[in-house]
Design a protein around this nucleic acid. Structure first.
Lengths: 116, 116
DNA sequence: AGCGATTATTTCGCAAGCGAAACGTCTTTT
DNA sequence: AAAAGACGTTTCGCTTGCGAAATAATCGCT
């Protein structure tokens, strides 16, 4: 268990960043969609539907739907696997990189503001 | 603009915490619902529908719906304002406090794990 | 070559959330 | 006291997401 101060600290930081995101115009990603974005952009490729479903413990159709939505937004892309033609690799896009970059700015600003 | 290391740092922390939350059983709150929870539990009362809508720049019906859902989950409660009978105060519950306490544990664990 | 396993997707019925507009209640202004 | 405004809620039509089950394509094993 943490001390009370650090509990509040983490929550306040989350609040500021999240509030900023909700206020923002533009795409409002669900928790699952954001989790998939972060995995795809922060963990080493390759990323597959089954892999994402397993890591997040959600159903494969849920992953497929999230990829549909994120793909429509150009935040990531499907790329057929040439070795195993049943499989699909999920890859990054420029727009997705920009999106996450701005996102991390928001988080960092909140962190900085809170620590100050 | 931050240096690249700290950008990645914030994102990785967010990813670990968010991943844990998505995996978790139990209520899966939307971004808006979570934002409302954090405001109600971290900022000083009183909290009203119009106040929450203004702060998050979302419509009042959206706030009403979120309060319906969160209220059904016992994560917060409506309390009629005695002074101005048009108004409603949003107040905390024990269950909500527990929920956020566990939430901050997850965030803190992710932060600690990442800094290690 | 054939057959079961694996991968991703689609279909189905359903539940939840959205914004805009209308509404009911209460307060403030005139 | 009547009108105007403020607050929260409800209604409307619509969009999105969900899990479970069914489907299509491909792989691997024997």
């Amino acid at each position: 268990m943490q001390d009370k101060a650090s509990l509040q600290s983490a929550l306040r930081m989350w609040e500021e960043a999240l509030g900023e995101l909700v206020r923002r115009d533009g795409p409002d990603l669900s928790a699952r969609q954001m989790a998939i974005m972060l995995i795809v952009y922060l963990q080493e490729p390759p990323h597959t539907v089954r892999g994402l479903a397993a890591q997040l413990k959600i159903s494969k159709p849920a992953v497929v739907r999230a990829l549909d939505t994120l793909g429509r937004m150009d935040l990531l892309k499907r790329k057929p696997d040439e070795q195993d033609k049943r499989s699909v690799n999920v890859v990054r896009t420029v727009k997705g990189s920009v999106y996450l970059s701005e996102f991390s700015d928001v988080v960092n600003e909140a962190a900085k503001r809170h620590l100050a």
